[in-house]
Design a protein around this nucleic acid. Structure first.
Length: 565
RNA sequence: UGACCUGUGGUGUAAUUGGCAACACGUCUGAUUCUGGUUCAGAAGAGUCUAGGUUCGAGCCCUAGCAGGUCAACCA
C-alpha cells in the first residue's frame, strides 16, 4: 500500500493549492508547517466526494511532511450521532489514512468557544438579540439590498453579559434569544451582516450530553478550531468561499501571534449518474429504498467497499481527477476505469457461470474426470496456477450459445466448434429443447487430442468459452449491482425527484449460478475476475457453504456494445 | 440592481519567468490473445467563452463584454 501511495504523490501534478502552500512556505509563514484537517459533520456516512477531500488533505500533509487531524464538526446536536462518528473513522482508515493521536471534536472546544464569545461581548463585538428568526432574517436584507440594524444591537456590555449567561443557564427557550457578532449590516456579503454565533438548543449532544443548551454556529466554530488545533491550511469546498471574510474576522479577534490558518476552497466532486447529497442518501436509507448506508449500490465509501472497490482504486481516482475551482462533473467511467485498472493486475481469474446451460459431452466416458491446469493471473506469473476439475457434464453461459448465430458471433451454435477454456475443443451436435421450444441442453463431442491449446490437425477456433464442471461446481449467489440511477439523472446536485429515476435493475440477484470449486478455500473480500463477466468480490456476509459474490464492476465488452448498435 | 468565484477537445486535468496547447478517461482503427478482456501500435477530436488591446510572439498580461456557479438556515 505504501508503494502505491508514494508513486501517487510523485506523479501528482502541481495545482493551485500546492502553489498557495509553496508561497506560504517561501514566505516563511507558520514556522513553515503544513497542517491540514478533515472535518466531517457526523450526520451521515462518508461518500466518494468525501474521499476526494480525505485524499487531498492527507495527501497534502504527506507531500509536505506535515500532519492531518480528523475533526468531527459536531456543533449541531440535532443531526449528529455516534454511529456516524464510528463509520467515518472506519472509512478513513480503510482508505489508508491515519490521523494518529490527532482526533478532535469541535465539541471539545465548547468551553473555549464560550469563553471567546464572552470576550467578544466584553469588547463590544457581540450582542444578544431577542428577535425571532423571521424578524432577523427580514432585517438582514437580500444580497442586493443592505440590511438594517437590530433594535437590540446597542445593548450595554453588562446587559449582554447577563443575558448570555442566562441563555447558557437555560433560562430561555429555543429561539427566544441568539448571540450575534456585531460586524456590518450593510456589508455586500450577507455573512458579515451580524451573523448569529450562538443559538439556544435544548438537544442531547452525542458527546457532551445535556451539559450545554447553547451551541455555536459553524462559522463561529470552524476557524477557531483550526486556530486552536494549529491548522495552517483549512481546505473546504467552494460554497464556503463567501464565508472566508467571516472566517478571517474571527481569526483576527483571536490571533495572538504570527500564526494564522488560511482557508482555501476547491470544487467538490460531482459524478455523472450519481447522487452525492447526504440529505438524499439519508432519504434513500430512511425510506428503505436501499438496505442501509453500506448498500453496495450506494456511492458511500462503505457501499463501494462492500461492492468490492479497493482503497487503492479510490485513491488513484482521486489523484486522476485533480483539484481545481471549476465546478464540473466527472464521468463515472473514470471511477470504473480506476477499479478495473487495479483489479486487472491483482485479481485472481476464476470461471463462473451466471446463467447456466448444460452441455453433455457424449463421447467423454461417464465416470471419468480429470484436472485441468488454469492460470490464476496472466498479468502476474507469481500468482501461479490452479487445477480445475473437468467431467462429462459442464455448464456454459447460456448466451455463449445461439441457435441462429449472426455474422461475427464466434461462440457456440449448431455444428459449431469452440474451445472450453483450459480444456478441449467441443462441437455442438444436438440441441435439446422442452415442449415450449426453450433450449435446455446441448449434446457435444470433444476432441480428445485438443487439450492444452492445440488440435490434432492444427485447426483453430475463434471462440473460447468459460465453463464449470456440473458435478464439481459450487452453487453460488451472485449479485449484480448496477448504478442506482439511470441515464436520465445526470447530476447529483440538481434538485429533482431522484427516486423517479431509480433503476429497477440496479440490483439483480442470480440464484442459479455455478462457480468453480476453488471458492471453498477463499477468504471473504477477496477479489476475482470472473472470465468475461467482470470483477467480483466475495460478500462479507457470505460463508463457504453459501458463497455470495458482488460484482464490483463489469468488464468492458465490445461484443455487447456491438449488439446494442 | 449587489458581492465573490469560475470559463482550455465529449469528460476530468496540464502548459517553467508570455514561446509550436500536453496527459488521462471516453470514442474509433489495426495487431496480439486459450474468452470480443488484457496488452501493444495508431487515429480522430480543442486553437483555449467573445471582442478589442499590449507584444516579434498571448491560454497566460490589460480593457470591455458574455456565460455558468455561490451567497438572503437559530444547517454544515
Amino acid at each position: 500500500m505504501a508503494e502505491t501511495t508514494n508513486s501517487n504523490t510523485e506523479t501528482k501534478k502541481a495545482n493551485f493549492i500546492h502553489a498557495q502552500i509553496d508561497a506560504d512556505l517561501a514566505a516563511g509563514k507558520n514556522d513553515k508547517r503544513v497542517h491540514t484537517r478533515f472535518p466531517p459533520e457526523p450526520n451521515g456516512y462518508l461518500h466518494i466526494g468525501h474521499a476526494k477531500s480525505i485524499c487531498l488533505n492527507f495527501g497534502l500533509a504527506q507531500k509536505y511532511g506535515g500532519k492531518t487531524n480528523l475533526r468531527f464538526d459536531d456543533t449541531n446536536p440535532s443531526k449528529e450521532e455516534t454511529e456516524y462518528v464510528e463509520s467515518i473513522m472506519e472509512d478513513v482508515h480503510w482508505l489508508g489514512f491515519d490521523w494518529e493521536d490527532r482526533l478532535y471534536y469541535a465539541s471539545n472546544f465548547f468551553p473555549k468557544l464560550h469563553a471567546f464569545a464572552i470576550q467578544l461581548i466584553k469588547e463590544g463585538k457581540a450582542y444578544v438579540d431577542d428577535q425571532n428568526a423571521e424578524t432577523i432574517s427580514e432585517q438582514k436584507g437580500t444580497p442586493q439590498k443592505p440590511g438594517i440594524e437590530s433594535p437590540f444591537r446597542n445593548r450595554t456590555i453588562e446587559e449582554n453579559l447577563d443575558l448570555f449567561e442566562r441563555m447558557t443557564a437555560g433560562e430561555f427557550d429555543e429561539g427566544e434569544k441568539v448571540l450575534r457578532a456585531k460586524i456590518d449590516m450593510t456589508s455586500p456579503n450577507m455573512h458579515m451582516r451580524d451573523p448569529i454565533i450562538y443559538r439556544i438548543m435544548k438537544a442531547h449532544h452525542h458527546r457532551t450530553g445535556d451539559k450545554w443548551c447553547v451551541y455555536p454556529m459553524y462559522d463561529f466554530a470552524h476557524g477557531q478550531c483550526d486556530y486552536w488545533e494549529g491548522i495552517t491550511h483549512s481546505i473546504c469546498t467552494l460554497e464556503f468561499e463567501v464565508h472566508r471574510p467571516l472566517y478571517d474576522w474571527f481569526v483576527d479577534q483571536l490571533m495572538d501571534s504570527d500564526y494564522r490558518p488560511r482557508q482555501i476552497e476547491f470544487s467538490r466532486l460531482n459524478l455523472t449518474y450519481t447522487v452525492m447529497s447526504k440529505r438524499k442518501l439519508l432519504e434513500l436509507v430512511k425510506d428503505n429504498h436501499v438496505n442501509g448506508w453500506d448498500d453496495p449500490r450506494m456511492p458511500t465509501i462503505s457501499g463501494l467497499r462492500r461492492r468490492g472497490y479497493t482503497p487503492e482504486s479510490i485513491r488513484n481516482f482521486s489523484d486522476k481527477i485533480g483539484v481545481t475551482k471549476v465546478d464540473g462533473t466527472t464521468d463515472v467511467s473514470l471511477l470504473e476505469f480506476s477499479v478495473r485498472e487495479h483489479l486487472n493486475k491483482t485479481a485472481q481469474r476464476v470461471m463462473g457461470v451466471l446463467d447456466p446451460l448444460k452441455v453433455v459431452i457424449t463421447n467423454y466416458p461417464e465416470d471419468q474426470e480429470e484436472m485441468l491446469s488454469a492460470v490464476n493471473n496472466p498479468e502476474d506469473e507469481n500468482m501461479g496456477r490452479r487445477d480445475v476439475p473437468f467431467s462429462r457434464e459442464v455448464y456454459i453461459e447460456r448466451n455463449d450459445f445461439m441457435e441462429n448465430p449472426p455474422r461475427k458471433f464466434f461462440r457456440l451454435g449448431p455444428d459449431r466448434e469452440v474451445r472450453l477454456r483450459y480444456g478441449y475443443l467441443i462441437k455442438c451436435n444436438e440441441v435439446i429443447k422442452d415442449e415450449e421450444g426453450n433450449v435446455t441442453e446441448l449434446h457435444c463431442t470433444y476432441d480428445s487430442e485438443s487439450k492444452g491449446g492445440k488440435s490434432s490437425d492444427g485447426r483453430k477456433v475463434k471462440g473460447v468459452v468459460h465453463w464449470v464442471s456440473a458435478k464439481h461446481a459450487v452453487k453460488a449467489e451472485v449479485r449484480l449491482y448496477d448504478r442506482l440511477f439511470t441515464d436520465e439523472e445526470p447530476d447529483g446536485h440538481k434538485d429533482v425527484d431522484f427516486k423517479a429515476f431509480m433503476n429497477p435493475d440496479s440490483l439483480k440477484v442470480l440464484n442459479e449460478c455455478y462457480i468453480e470449486p476453488f471458492v471453498k478455500n477463499s477468504k471473504p473480500l477477496d477479489h476475482f475476475q470472473f472470465e468475461r463477466l467482470g470483477y467480483f468480490n466475495m460478500d462479507p456476509d457470505s460463508t463457504a457453504d453459501n458463497p455470495v459474490f458482488n460484482r464490483t464492476v463489469a468488464l468492458r465488452d465490445s461484443w455487447a456494445k456491438a449488439q446494442k448498435k
